[in-house]
């Protein structure tokens, strides 16, 4: 079987995979990084979003072998070494931006990509950027608020408008 090597959350990772092994499977099954979730098979739900070379991608719609040599960042690498939540994670907790938690890793990784590109997004920009992330629990209200807050904006005031 082919070998694949990449850097995951700053650490070298390698493993034997089949051609058909998806990046999401490699992370979950080979590396035990089960924070990356799989919620659909048509590349729509976004529970599997990770960053590959700094870009948000759906790990269930990319083969592990395509990530050869890449820098991969997953939800497990987001908190500080001491376990402290990063700004986005903290905002999700502060604003009740998650319920069952299944879509949450993808939401956080997508939000991180958005804020890198657009540090102070509008409500509409946030909703637009979340087009590929489905949440069934929150009705998105508090997710959008959390992302507004993570970007340093007054989420409460914007949501009340």
């Amino acid at each position: 079987m082919p070998q694949v090597a990449m850097t995951v959350n700053g650490k070298p990772a390698r493993g034997e995979v089949e051609g058909r092994t998806l990046l999401s499977s490699f992370l979950r099954d080979n590396l035990g990084l089960t924070g990356t979730h799989v919620g659909c098979d048509t590349s729509q739900c976004g529970a599997c979003v990770v960053h590959v070379d700094g870009k948000d991608v759906k790990a269930c719609t990319m083969f592990a072998l395509e990530a050869e040599g890449a820098q991969v960042d997953t939800i497990e690498g987001q908190a500080g070494a001491d376990g402290s939540l990063n700004v986005i994670q903290q905002a999700f907790q502060d604003h009740h931006g998650l319920q069952c938690g299944f879509c949450t890793p993808g939401m956080v990784m997508t939000a991180a990509a958005l804020l890198k590109e657009t540090p102070k997004p509008s409500e509409a920009e946030i909703r637009d950027y979340l087009e590929g992330n489905i949440c069934r629990c929150t009705g998105y209200h508090n997710i959008v608020k959390a992302i507004l807050a993570a970007s340093g904006q007054d989420a409460g005031a914007i949501a009340a408008e």
Binding site: G35, E76, Q78, F92, H96, G101
Partner: peptide, 14 residues
């Protein structure tokens, strides 16, 4: 919510 920490860090147990 106390359960959020594990969900936000990818350490839930589904």
């Amino acid at each position: 919510r106390r359960e959020d920490v594990r969900f936000l860090t990818g350490t839930g147990n589904y």
